[in-house]
Design a protein around this nucleic acid. Structure first.
Lengths: 249, 249
DNA sequence: CGGAGTATTGAGGCGCTTCAAAGGCGGTGG
DNA sequence: CCACCGCCTTTGAAGCGCCTCAATACTCCG
């Protein structure tokens, strides 16, 4: 539920190491990064498009969202990030921010210096490669999301989101996949799902009434994971989360 | 309209160099990559999910699409690639292919050896970084597309696609942005746009009748670029295409 | 205890889909 | 060389999913 700066950094570095091989020196260099903690309240932008914000944003607590706005004020959230995840590593590669980054709940974030990150990447091709892989997984998640937005109806889309969020929260040590707190309003969920808040409400209701999920406030419980995954046509492999037990494989 | 292997490779290497600084040795190494040309006919898969296809696919002619399938046979195309573009550089970073790659038209593709690409990347952090930047731009295009799928109606979505494709074809030397050949069927466009073929047909008709575009077979003409861009709310910056005239800036 | 943001529910409308059928168009073989 | 066949395009009509507008209830917080 709550991470210190160093705990969040450790989750991130462990994740990098799991995705791409790193030497002990690489890991030490990453662990030693300067980490400035900052608190941001819900609905406050952290980065906005076009800015040259010189830090990368690592989530320590709360939920951070990446989004693009339309001229009429509507928006689409293209990614959400939970504690232990680095929300905008891609911005290191393409510094002119294309999307905005916003705290969707009250958040604690760890700011990592952009120039410092670039320096450690330049010093080690393995770190550069690990950053690339991390970004590529982020892109794979986005591709999956595009499929949901383009081809799946609301019920399935929501089920898919809940499956994914459950797994990611679990992977970051924020609970278990079938019982977790997701502190987003239905309006924010609507911006993730490409729906209206009203329809999100009805869709949650439908999933509840079918027994596929249980909801108490913003706590979601999934009594039968297999069943929800079937509704969502959810295949976890794209997340590249390696369960500890299978790490040797 | 048609590229030799070396011409396609050159467009790609030029693009890499424009996105991220490369040394002369880097460029020479990339130009010297082994390039095997292959012909693929329309609707044939080049890579399918889960395969460990050990090549990267550079488009020399035709259009290549990346897509994900649903269990009921429907699919969502998450990216299309025109000549001069490398369709699956991201697969170098995350080898287990998550999406399929298909020739949407008859295509000539250039196969670049995965191990060889990895070797040149390992030898130069600048090349690794350039690959990362190239993938990040690809992801930015995808994010933009997610917004279209989630929040824009068919007319706007199609207009946006035409603006983007026009610019990308122009950037690859395949014509000009306001008069180009896009050899996709309406069924394929539907899979890109997240619509049905029937509705694609009606949407094209609507754009034609409003005078925003002219269509002759699969040639699209845009009489007033500014007007179509306004309909699409299109902002070209995310494509990171640097017009030659502004390259010095 | 009041107020603001959030959740819930209803009713009606629009955009897109589905189903169905007819009209091009290019390619291939008789 | 033309007739035919498959694929693509085009059009119509009806239905469903999601949206819009609107009103009411809830919950947290000062």
């Amino acid at each position: 539920m709550f991470f210190s700066a160093s705990a969040a950094l450790q989750v991130f570095v462990d994740r990098l190491a799991a995705l791409s091989s790193l030497s002990h020196e690489d890991i030490a260099a990453l662990r030693g990064l300067n980490a400035k903690v900052s608190r941001v309240s819900a609905n406050a932008d952290i980065v906005f498009p076009g800015s040259n914000f010189e830090h990368a944003v690592l989530v320590a607590s709360g939920v951070v969202g990446r989004y693009l706005s339309l001229s009429d004020g509507r928006r689409q959230i293209t990614a959400i990030h939970v504690p232990g995840e680095l929300a905008d590593l891609h911005r290191l590669a393409t510094p002119k921010a294309g999307s905005a980054l916003q705290a969707l709940t009250n958040c604690a974030i760890v700011l990592l210096s952009g120039p410092e990150l670039r320096a450690v990447a330049l010093a080690s091709p393995r770190i550069t490669r690990a950053f690339w892989v991390y970004s590529a997984v982020d892109a794979a998640v986005l591709a999956r999301w595009a499929v949901n937005l383009g081809r799946r109806e609301a019920r399935v889309r929501l089920a898919h989101l809940l499956c994914e969020v459950g797994l990611r929260l679990e992977a970051s040590g924020q609970g278990v996949r079938n019982d977790f707190l997701l502190e987003l309003t239905q309006g924010q969920l609507a911006d993730v799902l490409g729906l209206t808040p009203v329809h999100v409400n009805r869709t949650i209701k439908a999933l509840k009434e079918s027994g596929a999920i249980e909801v108490e406030g913003r706590i979601f419980r999934i009594p039968d994971w297999t069943r929800l995954a079937a509704i969502a046509e959810f295949e976890a492999d794209y997340l590249q989360i390696i369960p500890p037990a299978e790490e040797a494989a």
